[in-house]
Nucleic acid binder design. Structure first.
Lengths: 271, 271
DNA sequence: ACCAAACTGCGGCATAAGCAACAAAAATCA
DNA sequence: TGATTTTTGTTGCTTATGCCGCAGTTTGGT
């Protein structure tokens, strides 16, 4: 496998056809670097017909890895691979609403820590949309890229780069974050049960905990589909949060736990 | 919004209509929320013809605010490198060759620092193709994303995020890099004169210098077009480098300076 | 009120992309 | 080796988009 790839590289100008998986990997890679690629360009590059590229696009699109457009495709939420249980194209509307409400909480001149995750990326987009002048510290590359061109100043954390989440983790990340104290933090999670939010990736839980410890106001951004789920690692208690931004009001046991912990519940309505 | 004001001033006698300016502002805002918008959608939303939207796109495109695509446009603010874009279509072949040769220098298990820049991105791509298992430390987001999928482990530097180059700079970056000692570093530059390579962005020069100080083998990756150019800040002397990877053999004064400093010259031939 | 400049819309034509069905080539497996 | 499945290419057609020029309209100024 690896030998084949090396051969292809060595071949240089006379390029043999790439295998399907490799070609699609390349497409995703290209989309990480450029927001939009054209079918014709890729067809020429890979020496395949446009139809083949179109089929690749279809396949990647149904997997939720890219967003199709006329004549090309753009990366779905900038380099975030959906996990086993989460499809990027799913719940976009809900996440947009949550992100918009979360972004509206940030005021001029504040410092904010923003976690990695698809929901927090939406918050970053809305923050860029609003043009709030603030300072953002994040371990998420998409968040940094989204905010980088606008009014906010962006400080990126060090750490080991995880391509699956387009974010950095590790002891360097945690140590770096612990140097700062900020006004707010925006935290995402893969599950929210009565005993608290949880995360499937253990390394991320540590990052979220450090952010919580160094922020004044602590917001949890989560959509209703994750209610009741329990991830591998628990991030903390309900009492670790000041407010939770959701698309649907929690109920039953979850609502009780939130009320008991005194967490303010913000429901992002449609519109 | 600021751009609109600038445009008005630049236009002088001719003041743009409020309608047009507002529409274009909306387009830019929309692109902050979604990576790609379609002409037909915008035309319908604004109740104007597609031609009008097309003209808006043209105007915004020539201002470098968006990236055009067939049927729509994507934000130049999302992972595209405005600074690199001018040269992106130029000298690609040369840079690919340089990158390939530079990547072939890296051996299994080594640790490598990779600078930001269009040429070093190419080196990262080739390194990803080769599948060399190594550890890479970089301040460039595209380099991290390119290598993140493959065999290499990637450590990203902290720092202030600069969208123009998709890289981080600043004291945090420098301090972080100084903790490491690596086998090699790959450095790019915006100019190479007899007295040494130089960089147009002052912040980057400091990062490059730190990388050079903490690496065993030090490689300069640069294409022939930059020969003789002098940037704002000098990165260092010729003697700071062990080898230079180029697409065309330097000549005259430059060659003498390289020979005198004992720099090994690797010419990436066409393949 | 008139003019000039700019903005917008419409039509025609060229090009690119989407789609579907079938054929060809390649990979897989018994 | 031969058959089956997968992948890719080709053809023909439809639709969408891009581009150019012209004309109608609006806007701002004299």
């Amino acid at each position: 496998m690896v030998d084949d790839m090396v051969k292809q590289i060595e071949a240089g100008s006379a390029r043999p056809r790439l295998k399907k998986a490799e070609r699609r990997r390349q497409i995703l890679l290209e989309l990480k670097l450029r927001p939009h690629v054209r079918i014709s360009d890729l067809a020429e590059r890979f020496n395949v017909s446009t139809e083949t590229v179109r089929r690749d696009f279809d396949a990647l699109s149904t997997d939720g890895l890219i967003d199709r457009a006329h004549g090309g495709a753009s990366a779905a939420t900038q380099g975030h691979y959906p996990g086993l249980d989460e499809r990027a194209n799913d719940r976009v509307r809900e996440r947009e609403r949550i992100g918009r409400m979360a972004a509206s909480l940030v005021r001029e001149g504040e410092t904010v820590m923003i976690d990695s995750g698809s929901t927090t990326i939406q918050a970053a987009r809305s923050l860029a949309y609003l043009g709030t002048r603030c300072t953002v510290i994040t371990n998420s590359i998409p968040v940094a890229m989204t905010l980088g061109h606008g009014a906010p100043q962006v400080i990126l954390c060090p750490g080991e780069y995880l391509s699956a989440e387009s974010a950095v983790v590790g002891t360097d990340t945690v140590e770096f974050l612990s140097r700062f104290n900020v006004d707010r933090c925006m935290i995402g999670a893969s599950g929210l049960a009565a005993e608290g939010p949880s995360e499937t990736v253990r390394g991320f839980a540590a990052v979220k905990r450090i952010m919580l410890r160094h922020a004044g106001k602590r917001h949890l951004l989560i959509d209703a589909r994750k209610f009741g789920r329990k991830g591998l690692a628990r991030i903390g208690d309900m009492t670790d949060f000041d407010s939770i931004v959701v698309d649907t009001r929690p109920q039953g046991e979850l609502l009780e736990a939130l009320a008991e912990a005194g967490v303010h519940i913000s429901v992002a309505e449609q519109g």
